[in-house]
Amino acid sequence: MKALFLGAGASYECGMPLVFEFTNGLRANVLKRLDTKLFDFRKDPSFRTRFEAILSDPDLHYEQMIGELEALQLRRDPSSEIARLTALQLVDCVQILLLEDQELTTKFFAEKAKDYSGIKAMLAKHRCLHVFSLNHDINFEEICKFHGVQCRDGFFDQGVDRYTNIANFKSLTKQQLDNGNLNLFGPEGLGVNLIKLHGSLDMFAVEDKNLYLKCTPTAEAPIGGHVQEIRRIENHSVELSQRVNLRTVGELDVTDKDGEIQFLRRSLLSGAHKFKGTFDQIAPIAFFEEFKKRIAAITDLDVIGYGFGDHHVNEVLRQWAEASNVSLNIYDPYRKSIPTFLDDVADRVCIFNFGLTEYFQIFDPPKKSFFSSIRSKMLESVRENLRKRRLSLWQDSRDA
């Protein structure tokens, strides 16, 4: 049985940034706002300098920055509380900037999505395909929708009436999560089971984590429909915050159909202490447990765009790879060697130096023509310009 495992590199060709590429923009945007009300250092003004040093360290990417703040919180000294609040606000910044990236690349992605028609041909060979993803973006959902592929993510299609004024949602209750009752295809089903391990831009917890909501676009919505639903929530929250002159961290303040204030807690999971139980976590642990359970039945795993930087994931992969009947294929344009934790099973690990686009073209080879060649070069040029733009944000902030 085949499955895919997706990291940030899988979304790179769609316009989304790699880790350090995204960090450049985050660092530049946060540093220039340290003297605004975005962060509150009034109880410990000296912490601003410590935070600035973390942000300015060129060797740290954004998850490591959050990890540094988490480590300061765990010291349980007078700076612990401000470190906690600063980490929460930084994760909020990550969510906001990722959403902006998703919006800014929508037109590019709408064209690029045409290159992933191989998903349909792949399903002809592998009727029930598990896709495990670490990505917060909603690109794979959009790819499936664009190509008419059924995709289930564990959430049930019925929404909750009290929140319909905010956005279109699917829902999943805590009881369903605890019972392992997820809306996924069975072995005889035809479609994609998408299991997102680290939360998502469009996933929120509400009612003390007894209910989870996930944005869903209307059936007729074009690519970008997911983003529009998330933006509706953000705009709703901004309007309410401005009206009551109050802003919370780590959650969006909204009002339901009855006018009651509700708090939609963001699900993005980031930092150095994922799934350790050290910090409150919004992304449901049940999805990670589902990953561990379902990977046991996989014999052929294709890992696309993952840098093997998450220890909790690597441990699962290491244990899975010990089975003698499994094989692992790594798709990464730049990787030359296998991760050291897989050295003992190196004979069953292969590396291919290309990404998601060429991967799907294996299943549906494109027709070669002069037009297709020009189009491909244009898309590569646009993608390279996005990379340069994000790099220049950090360079401009240093020169300012």
Rank of each mutant, 00 (worst) to 15 (best):
P217S: 12
E188V: 10
D208I: 07
L201R: 01
N183A: 12
K170T: 11
N183D: 15
V160C: 13
G159Y: 01
Q176A: 11
I195G: 07
L201H: 02
V206M: 05
H198I: 12
G224F: 01
Q158I: 11
C144S: 02
K209L: 06
K214H: 10
C144K: 01
Q228L: 04
A167L: 08
N168D: 13
Q175D: 14
N210F: 03
F156P: 07
R162F: 04
I230A: 00
A221K: 00
A167S: 15
Y212L: 07
K145T: 01
V149K: 02
Q150E: 11
F185C: 07
R152P: 02
D153I: 01
G180P: 01
Q175C: 09
L184P: 01
G154A: 07
V160D: 04
G180L: 10
C151F: 01
K174A: 09
P222M: 15
D157G: 03
V192C: 09
A167W: 01
L190N: 13
F204G: 09
G154L: 05
G159A: 11
D202Q: 10
L182I: 09
D208K: 15
Q158G: 14
F169I: 02
I195A: 15
V160Y: 02
M203H: 01
K145V: 01
G199D: 14
A221M: 05
H147P: 01
H198T: 05
E229Y: 00
L172N: 04
G154I: 05
G199R: 03
L211T: 11
I195P: 03
P222K: 13
K170H: 08
K170G: 03
E220L: 13
N168K: 14
K174S: 13
N183G: 11
T173L: 12
E220Y: 14
L211D: 09
H198N: 15
K209T: 03
Q176M: 15
K174C: 05
F185P: 05
K174N: 10
E207P: 10
L182P: 00
D178P: 00
F185R: 05
Q150L: 10
L211I: 09
S171W: 02
L172P: 00
Y212S: 05
M203K: 03
N168T: 14
V227E: 03
Q228C: 09
L190Q: 14
C215V: 05
A205Y: 04
F204L: 04
C151W: 00
V149C: 13
T164V: 10
E207I: 04
G148N: 12
Q175T: 12
V160Q: 04
T218H: 14
F146Y: 10
M203A: 11
